[in-house]
């Protein structure tokens, strides 16, 4: 036997199950236990940039909305900095860039308010179009799914984005673009996540 490398093995993933709310969003499960539920306020009151709403649904392979999913998001502020010691320049007081949202038990819809992120750099220093990193868990999902949300009003930046361009099937890139519209004068983006089927969302191994 050659020498052992002594690395540990990553702990295996298991589904979050149908009752993920108890642990991560207990009020939705039906009880009030923590003083602060985490992930409600993504950008805080001081963040610069455009205030936006993003909403959508999560759809299974039969076209039905998934009503027990949980999404987390991680994003830069409007200047492309993350709220992390190695995430770039300091961010505005109260900006976290992290959020947690569930799909509605009746409709399957989810939605959150934040600020539109700025451009960031990839590992080789190339600019990436503004985007939000998303992570999805649900009953029946064995390992959390990673994807990215880009913005329809950033066509030029999206066309140059190194990650979108890595997707060989050009028509699949559209699954990652949230569509902008105005509601009562305020910007709302629509982003449906399809776990399976013809228009399956692109998921990443990150």
């Amino acid at each position: 036997m050659p020498q052992s490398l002594h690395y540990l093995k990553e702990t295996a993933s298991q589904t979050a199950g149908p009752y993920v709310h108890i642990g991560l969003a207990p009020k939705a499960a039906g009880f009030d236990i923590y003083k602060r539920e985490l992930g409600r306020d993504i950008s805080g009151p001081n963040a610069k940039g455009e205030r936006i709403r993003i909403e959508g649904s999560v759809i299974d392979g039969m076209g039905a909305p998934i009503k027990d999913a949980l999404l987390e998001l991680w994003q830069a502020n409007s200047e492309g900095n993350y709220a992390h010691p190695q995430g770039g320049d300091p961010v505005e007081e109260g900006f976290r860039g992290w959020g947690r949202v569930i799909t509605d038990f009746n409709t399957g819809d989810w939605g959150f308010e934040t600020v539109k992120p700025g451009k960031t750099l990839d590992s080789r220093g190339k600019p990436q179009a503004p985007h939000i990193t998303l992570w999805l868990v649900a009953r029946g999902v064995n390992v959390g799914l990673n994807t990215r949300l880009y913005f329809s009003d950033e066509a030029e930046a999206n066309a140059a984005d190194p990650v979108l361009n890595m997707i060989e099937w050009e028509h699949r890139r559209a699954t990652l673009i949230a569509q902008r519209s105005l509601r009562d004068g305020k910007p709302v983006y629509r982003f449906d996540i399809r776990l399976q089927g013809e228009a399956e969302t692109v998921f990443f191994d990150i």
Partner: peptide
């Protein structure tokens, strides 16, 4: 898991700062 499993391969990414950092 049958109707909730993606069929296509995941696209492998080099990590950029958004994957290397977290809350």
């Amino acid at each position: 898991s049958v109707a909730r499993s993606p069929s296509y391969s995941k696209i492998s990414l080099d990590n950029s700062v958004g994957e290397l950092t977290g809350p």
